Amino acid sequence: MTPPPHADEFESHRPRLFGLAYRLLGSAHEAEDAVQDAYLRFSGADRAAIEHPGAWLAKAVTNLCLTRLTSARARREEYPGPWLPEPVATSDGTLGPLESAERREQVSMALLVLLERLTPTERAVYVLREAFGYGHREIAGVLDLSEANCRQLYRRAVARVAAPEGRFEPAPQRQEELLTSFLTAAREGDMAGLEKLLAADVTYWGDGGGRVSAALRPIVGREKVMRFLMGGAERFTKGLDFAVVEVNGAGALVARAGDMLVGVASFELRDGLITHVRTVMNPDKLAYVQRQLARS
């Protein structure tokens, strides 16, 4: 059966639309839903009235995501334990080309967590400006706001997500070495080895979503994180296979039990030390990246 003409046209925009929706929502499955809803609107729209399909679709997806963000905020406030974004494997270009540190930063777990501080509109302005290079006039057209208002929202968003100075992302090979050393030390109960890898103010988050056992609060400080890792090392690593995979633009540890993905640990590094560990174990949040990895 031959697809309708608008379907092929839409598919040419789908990757960019998914990247936009994911950055806005921090959820791969919700991003897929938003993109599909945009397709339904596109297929039912008056074709003659759409002069620039790419711009029309970007506006549709953005506004669909703004609606979702409003309800998502209430759900995340009631979420059991820390809420983390859904991990997405990025070596296949799912979130677009990440050929620079700046582009990798825009899809990093660290930034997606910081974006949770913003209002939905601030987040939309920030993502459209920083990740997609929209001018303030273009953003105003997408959001139906004044250009001056968009400039103000952007300045406020930048101030609220400002990263601490001194962030340092080592080369991919060095990242893999650090993560492999971390895994080895944790599995072997090597406290001295872990101490050399963790920053004094390291923080660990575990997102189980109430579906699997996880720390209900962030664990802060090298000694507390080491005790937590040592206490759960055998329980959390026995029978699992680990690999280093590019997730959200940086190396991450993925854990599998047979064919089932059971966890993705993302790391934030500074001056060659691990400053943040964010582990997603909620099965609902692993479904998308599991499908990705099964295809690779």
Rank of each mutant, 00 (worst) to 15 (best):
Phe168Ser: 13
Arg291Ala: 11
Ile274Gly: 12
Glu147Trp: 01
Asn63Ala: 01
Leu273Thr: 08
Ala31His: 06
Glu32Ala: 03
Val289Lys: 12
Ala38Ile: 03
Ala49Lys: 15
Glu122Arg: 14
Gly189Asn: 03
Glu51Ser: 07
Arg211Cys: 03
Ala28Met: 07
Thr67Pro: 08
Tyr288Asn: 11
Ala162Asp: 00
Pro53Tyr: 06
Thr70Arg: 15
Val280Glu: 07
Val61Asp: 12
Gly135Phe: 04
Glu177Ala: 00
Gly272Lys: 03
Asp271His: 13
Glu78Leu: 06
Glu11Cys: 02
Phe242Gln: 01
Ala200Val: 07
Glu169Cys: 01
Val158Trp: 01
Val225Trp: 15
Leu114Pro: 13
Glu102Leu: 05
Lys285Asn: 10
Thr94Asp: 02
Val88Asn: 11
Gln173Thr: 11
Leu24Ser: 03
Ala171Gln: 05
Met191Pro: 13
Glu246His: 05
Arg137Lys: 15
Arg187Asp: 01
Leu153Met: 06
Ala101Val: 01
Thr62Asn: 09
Leu98Asn: 11
Cys150Arg: 06
Thr184Gln: 05
Val244Glu: 01
Leu143Arg: 15
Leu145Trp: 04
Gly26Ala: 13
Leu66Cys: 06
Val247Asn: 08
Ala287Cys: 08
Arg16Thr: 09
Ala131Trp: 03
Met109Val: 08
Ala265Asp: 07
Asp8Gln: 12
Pro53Ala: 06
Glu234Gln: 14
Ala265Tyr: 08
Thr184Val: 01
Asp201Cys: 10
Gln106Cys: 00
Phe228Leu: 15
Pro82Trp: 07
Arg222Ser: 14
Arg217Gly: 07
Gly166Val: 00
Arg187Tyr: 01
Leu197Ser: 10
Leu293Lys: 08
His136Ser: 09
Phe182Gln: 07
Arg270Lys: 13
Ser12Tyr: 01
Met260Phe: 00
Gly81Asp: 00
Pro4Leu: 05
Glu86Met: 07
Gly232Glu: 09
Pro3Ser: 04
Arg295Ala: 12
Arg295Pro: 04
Glu78Ala: 11
Asp201Glu: 13
Thr2Glu: 09
Ser91Gln: 09
Leu179Lys: 02
Ser146Phe: 06
Ala140Gln: 11
Thr119Tyr: 08
Gln36Gly: 10
Leu197Asp: 03
Val35Gly: 12
Leu115Gly: 01
Arg76Asn: 07
